[in-house]
């Protein structure tokens, strides 16, 4: 049980576990940890999981340009996707645009990408944000790039499944429209999570620890998976795994 692992490796293994049994996972922009998790889940799936990684030349099956991912999603051909947020609030609204009174934002984020669409159409959307602070996890986002929940009559096939941060995992309760603390990463505490979370959330009496990756997971991750992710995220792979892009 004394196997050492990097914080990123725990997050990768945690996200990968959420993809078990799925058929097709897509990965969008600026998603090195979710992307690596998808490749890990694929490596463990025995050929059952397809991964489509935007911007990759070797891990993308698409031949019809940028629109094909979105068309696939609208047809229900994608089971899981990842979204982040400069701000994420307690109703799972995400803000990828900026802080302040739009359009006069005090801090500008990159933009909404495909979030305003994919959040509605992909059944299992995993929110991922490594920074777990009260400035990111806010009571109410300043700008809703994509809403966490919708009114009854809205065409919506998907939405938030979980929120994974550098400190813990929340799952999302669709009925209550609230996050629920699911597990805490080794070395972190409930008090610390409460202190650094700007929104209210539910929790069980006993909060389990996020399971550490086992030796075989780490071996797979540091071998084939690290090599596979290096093409798309060379800087990330070099930092976490020490791999070098052959291209």
């Amino acid at each position: 049980m004394s196997t050492d692992f990097a914080p990123e490796e725990l997050l990768i293994a945690t996200v990968a576990d959420m993809l078990t049994g799925l058929g097709h996972v897509a990965v969008g922009a600026q998603s090195p940890i979710p992307g690596t998790a998808a490749l890990l889940a694929r490596a463990r799936s025995g050929g059952g999981l397809r991964v489509s990684m935007l911007g990759s030349e070797t891990h993308s099956p698409f031949t019809d340009g940028g629109r094909e991912l979105f068309d696939c999603a609208a047809q229900g051909r994608i089971d899981a996707f990842f979204l982040g947020g400069g701000q994420i609030d307690g109703q799972a609204n995400i803000n990828l645009v900026g802080i302040g009174d739009y359009p006069e934002t005090k801090v500008r984020f990159p933009g909404s990408f495909g979030s305003a669409y994919l959040y509605f159409l992909v059944p299992r959307v995993i929110l991922f944000r490594e920074e777990h602070t009260a400035r990111v996890l806010v009571p109410k986002v300043d700008f809703v790039s994509a809403p966490g929940v919708s009114e009854e009559n809205t065409y919506r096939k998907g939405g938030p499944h979980a929120l994974v941060t550098g400190r813990c995992v929340f799952d999302f309760d669709d009925a209550a429209k609230r996050f629920r603390l699911q597990s805490i990463h080794p070395g972190h505490t409930v008090d610390e999570v409460r202190e650094h979370t700007g929104f209210n959330f539910d929790m069980p009496d006993d909060v389990p620890e996020t399971p550490a990756p086992d030796a075989s997971t780490l071996a797979l991750l540091r071998g084939d998976v690290a090599e596979a992710v290096t093409e798309r995220y060379p800087a990330f792979a070099a930092k976490v795994f020490g791999t070098v892009n052959a291209a």
């Binding site: 629109r67 495909g114 979030s115 305003a116 959040y119 509605f120 159409l121 809703v144 790039s145 065409y155």
Partner: peptide, 26 residues
């Protein structure tokens, strides 16, 4: 948002004035 830009271009490609797009509501 990405698919709305693709859809707007697809409308122009077809010479039609607009294109419906899923999501975005809210």
């Amino acid at each position: 948002t990405c698919p709305a830009i693709h859809a707007g271009l697809q409308a122009a490609e077809k010479g039609i004035p607009f294109m419906p797009v899923r999501g975005i509501v809210g």
